[in-house]
Structure formats: structure tokens, C-alpha cells
């Protein structure tokens, strides 16, 4: 891989806090290596801003290896930037070329209010999980792990759904700001396992009720969420959720 350096123009959303109105600011960064990660490029910019006596740009990030789900930049119109199956922290600068202008926005959804600059409040996801995204088993109650065989393809499908990192890119990408992919990933993960069976109905009904309450939109199956999901969570999970929901709503009392 050839390494190269580039000069870039960045248009970044700046917003002091949730009460203030935000706007775009334009910054220039020079000598960015193609081997840097996108967030390292932001580190460089922030160092530059601090030296100029300005406030650093706030952005969420933590593990920087694509698994914690904290990073959340909407880059040139796509959550997590141009690469497929990727998080912002794993995006590297060789995705760009010298002279490029990059527009960076926060996740935008009423259910994810901006805290500062590119940082949003995603605690609505926690509350959705609280409404039923678990199996009710107290510590110490469990039977031997191998006492209940699980079909490999079910286990694999459950794992594929459980790979969700809760970053919220699906909400950011969806024209309706719907959290259906996130909710369906959890519903599918637990519905596919026999351990999740007893609470199947109440789980899906409560989680959807909470999702609606948090102010996320409805799903219209456009598929934008699947296309942007860094972990490749499949749209078929949403169909599975629909099935679970319909059955549950028919039989619940």
C-alpha cells in the first residue's frame, strides 16, 4: 500500500450544548498521513485548535477498534463514513485524497439529542434494553451449559444478531430515524435461543412500546440501516421482529 500525505478541508458541526443552536465551522488540516485513522486526524485537528486557543471538538470514542460502539460521526452523508461494514474509528485516511472536503455531522435524531458538537445522548438505547432486552435469570440459577443443545444455525444467527454494538448508525441512516434494526437485533438474538423463549412475547411488545415512547420513527423497510451497519446486522431481523410482534400482539391478553 502506497503511503501519501494530504491537505484537507473539514466542515464540522459545532454546537455548544443541547440548548444552543449549532452551525458548521470550516477547518484546514495539512500533512495528514494516509495511514492515520479518521479519529487520529481529528486528534491532530484538536491539538491544532487547542494551540490556537480554541475549544477542542467533542466527539464520542473509546475503544478505537470498532467494538465499543461509542464513535458516531456522520461523514460526507453516511454514518461512519464511506467504507462498508466499518466504524468511524476504523476508517482510515486512505479513504480520502489530497484536497478533499469532508463534512462531519453528529447523528441526527430527536431521540439522540446533541450534547456537544458531535456527541449525542444515546441513553434511549439503554432504556429500550431495560424494557425487555434480557433473559430474566438470577445469578446462580443456571443449569449446566451443555444441558440444552442449540442448533448451530440458530446459535450462529443469534450470534450474528448479537454482534450489534449499539452505535446508533441505523438510526442516523434511516430517513425515519427508526431504531428498528437495533431493537430487532436484540429481539432476534434472544428469540432465536431457547433460553429466550419464556419471555418472547412480553419482550418484543415492551421493547417496541419503549422504542415508540423514546421518539424513534417507524420502519419502512428502506434498508438504509442495513447498508450502513458496521456489524452487518441483517434487515431480516426486522422481519423476524415483525413476526414476533404480530404473534405476540395476537395472543397477549
Amino acid at each position: 500500500m502506497e503511503h501519501y500525505n494530504m491537505n484537507l478541508t473539514l466542515k464540522v458541526w459545532r454546537q455548544e450544548n443541547s440548548d444552543k443552536k449549532g452551525k458548521f465551522e470550516t477547518y484546514k488540516v495539512n500533512g495528514i498521513s494516509s495511514e492515520m485513522s479518521f479519529l487520529e486526524m481529528f486528534d491532530v485537528l484538536n491539538e491544532q485548535l487547542i494551540h490556537e486557543g480554541k475549544d477542542a471538538i467533542a466527539f464520542d470514542h473509546d475503544c478505537r477498534e470498532g467494538i465499543c460502539g461509542a464513535c458516531s460521526m456522520y461523514i460526507n452523508g453516511k454514518p461512519h463514513g464511506p467504507w462498508e461494514l466499518n466504524t468511524t474509528c476504523q476508517l482510515h485516511m486512505r479513504a480520502f485524497k489530497d484536497g478533499d472536503t469532508i463534512v462531519v455531522e453528529p447523528w441526527r435524531a430527536k431521540a439522540f439529542p446533541v450534547i456537544k458538537d458531535l456527541v449525542t445522548d444515546r441513553s434511549s438505547f439503554d432504556r429500550i434494553i431495560q424494557s425487555g432486552g434480557y433473559i430474566s435469570v438470577n445469578t446462580g440459577n443456571a443449569v449446566d451449559a451443555n444441558s440444552l443443545p442449540i442448533k448451530k444455525d440458530h446459535a450462529d444467527a443469534a450470534f450474528a444478531a448479537a454482534a450489534c454494538i449499539g452505535c446508533g448508525a441505523c438510526v442516523a441512516a434511516c430517513k425515519n430515524s427508526s431504531a428498528m434494526l437495533f431493537v430487532s437485533a436484540k429481539v432476534s438474538h434472544l428469540a432465536l435461543l431457547p433460553q429466550g423463549e419464556p419471555e418472547k412475547e412480553s419482550r418484543v411488545l415492551n421493547m417496541i412500546a419503549q422504542m415508540d415512547k423514546e421518539g424513534f420513527g417507524g420502519c419502512t423497510n428502506t434498508g438504509a440501516c442495513e447498508a450502513t451497519c458496521p456489524k452487518g446486522i441483517s434487515l431480516s431481523n426486522i422481519a423476524r421482529l415483525n413476526k414476533e410482534y404480530t404473534l405476540a400482539s395476537l395472543i397477549s391478553e
Partner: peptide, 17 residues
């Protein structure tokens, strides 16, 4: 559904997704 976004995006995801 249209009311859920709040501030609109400057650049749209458009047909890529």
C-alpha cells in the same frame, strides 16, 4: 416519521443506502 429527525443533515445518505 418525518418529524423524528429534528435538524436535517447537510449531506444526505441518498441512494447509497
Amino acid at each position: 416519521n418525518r418529524s423524528k429527525r429534528g435538524t436535517p443533515y447537510a449531506v444526505s445518505y441518498g441512494n447509497r443506502g
